[in-house]
Amino acid sequence: MSGGATPALETRGLSAGYLRDEPVVRDISFTLARGSMTALIGPNGAGKSTLIKAMLGLVPFVTAERIAFLGTDLATARDRVAYIPQRSQIDWNFPACALDIVEMGLYPSLGLFRRAGRETREKARVALATVGLADSARAQIGALSGGQQQRVLVARALAQDAELFILDEPFANIDAFTETSLAEVLRGLRDRGRTILAVHHDLRSVRTHFDDAILLSHTIVAQGAVAQVMTDATLAQAYGFHAEGRAEDRAEHHSGPRA
């Protein structure tokens, strides 16, 4: 952590699950410094999505000693935290164009009764341009490619002017070119002091996209710089087998058995 600034995200002793007394993740403690870019990795069923949803209060049973967003509680930091769900959780047939969706990021700042005007529209356009979709502002969201849809969601978070971005599988099911450009957008955010936490399942691209990583298998197996986290020993512990090369293959096929 740099200087005396409060961390972007701090979690101590978190356990959470969908059933009482049956936590999916246990005893989770970690801290994200401001301006860091962290991948949350681990085998399928390790509780990656559950963990981020739990911190955001979207899971029914959560206990924790401390969950602090930007040094305060979620209710206070609400408008500075952006959650970007898995693309597959959203109904892309929703009647809206890309610009409409990005504007939704600005609604909280408008309050309940002010309507979206020209200024809102301009801010939304700027956010869309940042993710390289200036030309698609009026396109129906259902007609966009998977990668473009993912970038629309990122633009919504940009428009919200969030300081902490929490993304669930942003690179899932998008082509290689879009993956590269999306990664560039996220790195650009980091360079401007924003903090990024993303659930990620492709072990091969962790090194190219992220600085830090948290390896999860119901509990935290390792955390820190990517190189330290992704060792043969830790991966074997989380995924249940040895060589990293094999681990990558297995993770790709969504079938890693648990240790």
């Binding site: 935290v81 109904d91 969706i101 939704m104 609604y107």
Partner: peptide, 27 residues
């Protein structure tokens, strides 16, 4: 008309709107 933008945002992505919305529970 009055709550159109909140209602649309809640319908499109409830998780996001419940986190960031102006007054999602109220709406």
């Amino acid at each position: 008309i009055v709550f159109g933008k909140e209602l649309a945002s809640l319908a499109f992505d409830p998780a996001h709107a419940r986190l960031a919305g102006a007054a999602p529970r109220f709406v």
